[in-house]
Nucleic acid binder design. Sequence first.
RNA 1: GCCGGAGUGGCGGAAUGGCAGACGCACCGCACUCAAAAUGCGGCGGGAAACCGUGGGGGUUCGAAUCCCCCCUCCGGCACCA
Length: 927
Amino acid sequence: MPERSPTQDAESWGAVAQLGERNTGSVEVRGSSPLSSTPSAPKATIGNTEQPGWYRGSARDGLSSLTGTKGRLFRALTNGRSRGERVEDSMVDQALDAATAGSSTSERAGRYDAAAIEAAWRERWEADDLYRTADDSDRPNWYSLTMYPYPSGTLHVGHWYAFAVPDVYARMRRMRGDNVLFPMGFDAFGLPAENAAIRNNIHPATWTFDNIPRMRRQYDRMGAMIDWSREVVTCTPEFYRWNQWLFLRMLERGLAYRAKGQVWWCPNDQTVLANEQVIEDSICERCGAAVFKRDLEQWYFKITAYAEELLRDAGGLDWPERVKTMQRNWIGRSEGARLRFGLDGGQTLEVFTTRPDTVWGATFMVLAPEHPLVDVLTTPEQRGAVDVYRDQARRLSEIERQSTDAARPKTGVFTGGYAINPVTDERIPVWIADYVLMGYGTGAIMAVPAHDERDFRFARAFDLPIRVVIQPDGEPVLDPATMDAAYVGPGRMVNSGSFAGTPVPADVATVIAWLESAGRGQREVTYRLRDWLISRQRYWGTPIPIVYCDACGMVPVPDDELPVELPLDAAFTPTGQSPLVSHEGFLRASCPRCGGDARRETDTMDTFVDSSWYWFRYTSPGEDRLPFDPERAKKWAPVDLYCGGIEHAILHLLYARFFTKVLRDLGLTEHGEPFLRLRNQGMILSEEGVKMSKSRGTQVDPDALVERHGADALRLHLMYLGPWDQGGPWNSTGISGMERFIRRAFQVVTEAEDHPEIFDAPAADQDAIRRLTHRTIERVTRDLDDFAFNTMVAALIEFVNELVKRKDEPVARSAAWREAIETLTLLMAPSTPYIAEEMWQRLGRPYSVHQQAWPIFDPALTRVATAELVVQVNGKVRDRVQAAVDLTEADARALALASEKVRESLVGREPVKIVYVPGRLINVVVK
RNA sequence: GCCGGAGUGGCGGAAUGGCAGACGCACCGCACUCAAAAUGCGGCGGGAAACCGUGGGGGUUCGAAUCCCCCCUCCGGCACCA
């Protein structure tokens, strides 16, 4: 672990930041929109065709002087190569050396040189700042966001899948005329960085700032149109300062608070976790360890204050229904009433129930073992049993307590105390049982065994009275003695005083109104959602800006003393306490209020705080008075399209929605929802169909694939694997098909370049080509709008296949052909940005293809006059005929009956009905 | 247990009431090559055929992968939430 002296602190952030290639977080946005800027002079050398002495001509020419192995290598190197590129004898010799040294010659043969083309254009785009996005443009702003990654070191194909595919869509939007913001940053705080740093025995900061430039280069290689000038790195003080600022604003509003309670503890990560970070079977969402509960005082954000709004607003979002449902389930709204039961000692016991109509049937009560009134209620005779049971319940894990397993019998103990049923005035016994949870409702229930399954089983187990108060219409009268299950369906109230005969659930509201007027309770809505626990006992996160003073108590750090910097010289190995506890320089502070000795809060914030507002920061990354400039944010927020993995359906997306509502209430933004449209990609599995993992060696390395096949081919291959939202197993062979497609497209364009003369070709052929072109525009555009990338690629492939088929016909020298190949280039631009730029230049069109307008199809050209009409008899295909699409039904009928094949299958039977779908089919129905 | 999604050739998938299997991979044949690779051309659900085929069974319809009912399998979420 690197040890630094505290005096180095001031400079150390700068020093660490310089490990990265770029200064993060404070880059000024300059220049105008790339779409409106005048193209600068070409800097790349590709495509300069008139260079004496350089190889010139198509791949098949001029090879006669070279024979044997050397000749073949020459061909391999030049085949499909850009014509401006120098291929000299020395290169051939080099390649020959490489070949004889063992590398396969076949690997390079016949391939267009993706590496050279991609490198040259990447350089050119970077030099021209092609992806710089201005805030102001006469075009409409479109904010396209993809979830930022952890700077874990290297990208895997999953990152590509998540990022390259939305990039295709963003590029299409840009060509369609939008001013597209497509930013990128790094979720740089958190346990992955910290654990990796511990494993590799280097500082998390060093590790993080080493990884970021490497990953940036990988994203650039992918061809993503990222505006890096807006990059956000969350572990920089320039960023996390605003986490602290927002924390203070929330503290002022009562939305941040400190409280003691039962919290989840992960023994592996040595920190507490939020409810959302604990998954099924009490497992840590991050590391997979079994977690348990501890009593600790921690910091919370009051997300429950927005529960109703979070639930309500979800309905209006264009998000996958699945995600919305998951959020609704998580918030878990339930309507009912809070009822008050008097206790023997004069206190009141409150319960929440969704069935206030059954209160007449409440024959006992049950408290959670941790309920504060247990001590008050327990009689001396029951004290021993109650203590034993409480002790036992504490030891049980949450999963055992919540198990619905029928095999697990209900357990519980009588406290000896009694409550008064507020409607029957009966004295009913109060029990404790672990099936009642302290964390939900009031931690106490009224038990109505006749009409609640859990209460029924409890009553049977302990022989407690059961009273029927709801009777289903038209059924035999329910008898508690013979019932073998609770009745939970609709019916009429019985044994319920003046309410007898009231239909429920229809009239439950009347019952609640009466209870309210009688002062016995009131309507209430409860939520399953709990407040967000944000404290973490780990090092690599945002310090919570609080000091504790012996005289003044808890004091917030004033705004002008922010940021409270995370010291770089702390020993950060997890101990179960925040590592900052043992950092004297950090710990000691003077009280902002009285100036006396004080101690800093040493817990850090959950890193989900960073991701709860980071996208606002992209809109003004250098802002130093506020988290972001509200005026600039207004131009972009809310995000038009957000892409990311389904695993964030609850965690990140719920927190981000919560923060946005808080930011709105602080006046920093107007809209209460962060992401208008959400699309989730599926997961890319290994070839064997299991999750890719580094440890099992099932990860696929995109860099090696880019080297072999090019970034364009990898982008296509990922799109082509299947529907993007489904993901699926990786396959390593399919990428060659995409490479073939690219080469064929390139070939069609370069052959046209070799024969630039325009001839009149037969009109019918030109019409056919134009129809194909416009149909392809239609398909590609529609599929992109639908996020159907796989079928979009199929449309491009079909287009190229048809062009290749006809490239030696006269029509290949026609104006229609020229339109076809220019359109093809434009349609390929979002998917294969590199080769499309190369093709565009070969076509002699002005740089850059990415600044061109998206083609628009002419519906008149996509229509066909005649089509193949399927002729069926009783739904079975018997014949196919060419027919005009506007053929009348009578003519179609005549045509069908004239068919030899139809007559054969009719064999004397008379048609009883004819179904005619113009342009599609005709079905002759016989008996 | 409840809610949601899915099940189609050897594989990934396409078609959301109208020709099942577009497109790609793999595979097979042919051409080119001394040979291989690459490339090009052709084939590729089953069956000799009639026909049969979209997880299984039933239904609606002139017509069903697509709509309805029942069942099976897989995946995801929720689950003693009062």
